[in-house]
């Protein structure tokens, strides 16, 4: 497995619009209109603010179920997830499963690694280029 780049850092917030407005006004970041929105299947809405080669992803839980809601309940706002770009997400998942990691099935080039496998750090693997 080859980690290529930090694609983005996920930050859980209570109010997505308020958070992105803060980072726009005070930190000069702009929301990428091509990414983000409501993701009912995950119970969240999100927005990406690019910076350099990476981005900050702001995530607001929309329900009280699921890992994002659980994080918000336990910790409030804060850094939630590290998204690592890999060249081949399917191969990366196979590699990590072979090491005993709990990794979700890749979907649209994205796979989530259970934090129980990485000392508590939420990791996401993402493949940008089609294979």
């Amino acid at each position: 497995m080859k980690a290529l780049r930090i694609d983005h850092v996920g930050i859980v917030v209570k109010d997505l619009e308020q958070a992105t407005a803060t980072y726009a006004r005070h930190f000069d970041l702009q929301v990428d209109p091509a990414r983000g929105g409501e993701l009912p299947a995950l119970g969240i809405k999100n927005a990406f603010m690019p910076i350099g080669e990476s981005a900050l992803e702001f995530i607001q839980p929309l329900t009280d179920q699921g890992p994002v809601a659980q994080f918000a309940k336990e910790r409030g706002e804060g850094q939630y997830l590290l998204s690592i770009e890999v060249d081949d997400v399917a191969a990366a998942v196979e590699h990590l499963r072979g090491l005993g990691y709990r990794v979700g099935e890749p979907n649209n080039g994205i796979a989530f690694v259970s934090p129980k496998s990485s000392h508590g750090v939420n990791l996401q693997l993402i493949q940008r280029s089609a294979r």
Partner: peptide, 20 residues
């Protein structure tokens, strides 16, 4: 603005940096 150009580093805090 503050003239931020990129994320320079991300800190992962742990109970044992070497192991992580």
């Amino acid at each position: 603005g503050i003239g931020a150009t990129h994320i320079d580093h991300i800190v992962i805090s742990s109970s044992d940096a070497a192991v992580v």
